[in-house]
Amino acid sequence: MTVVSDPRPRSAKRPSRLFKNWMAKIASLPMILTALVVFLGGTAWTVTYSFTGSRMLPRAKWVGLDQYERLWDTDRWIISIKNLAIYGSCSMILTLVLGFSLAACLDRKIRFESAFRTIFLYPFALSFVVTGLAWQWILNPDFGLQSVVRSWGWESFAFNPLNDPNTVIFGLLIAGLWQGTGLIMCIMLAGLRGIDEDIWKAARVDGIGTVKTYVVVIIPMMRPVFITALVMIASGIIKLYDLVVAQTGGGPGLASEVPAKYVIEYMFRAQNLGQGFAASTMMLCSVVIILIPWAYLEFGGRKRG
């Protein structure tokens, strides 16, 4: 066992090294195929065909940037982008703030911590469809929250986000936050638990208050956790689709349309593949824009540290 570091002399009897590597290569074949054919190939295919005039079936008839010009001339796409921007920025800020605050509360050595954690996290186990339908019912103007508050005597109370084009996005936000903050809270809590107890002692010795310690000391220390959380929230926001389909169906009118829904409608309902490809390529671009700074922060930071 002491000469483990050099097993080569004995390897003559066993199958050659090349053969062993072949085994690993064959075993990795599903991964290689997925990475190259589906992920890389599929993405390249979609981007390529976004420059064609494909309608019902993909056809290699090049039209240059026509699809993109048409895309940015379509009201529905502009509305989708605006909606995603509003939903995304609100969701990003509120999820981080709520997630961190809840994690900080749970980290204060409280009783029933695991009970609270279970309560905050259970919606994450549920699908967006279930989330959307549950909140659709609670926000139902005739039977839900609004009617209950009115029946308590506040006759003029109005809270009907799902039927108001101006506020429907906030109706989605309530449901989205309900589903997603638990996850971020969990990640933040794990980050807080990783902070050295001595930091707290030092802060106490220096007479820094609890809140100030969090803001000035702890949050900067948790930068990697925040970045991870940010990337997770962002990639979730771009995928936003099921929740909208279930909760509002994109309505009222087009008021709660989102890009992912636009892509699917154009590809599979409107028989306008080229538009769908162009829109999905735009989605890809936005992800790349998010990923590059993240990769820079993540790997650039590691080099420095």
Partner: peptide, 24 residues
């Protein structure tokens, strides 16, 4: 390299891969 592509693939919006998979 394959692993890196695989991980990057997890961030690509599914919408970009939906139709090629239909064809496959």
């Amino acid at each position: 390299v394959f692993f890196t592509i695989l991980i990057i693939g997890a961030f690509i919006p599914y919408q970009t891969m939906l139709y090629p998979i239909v064809i496959m």
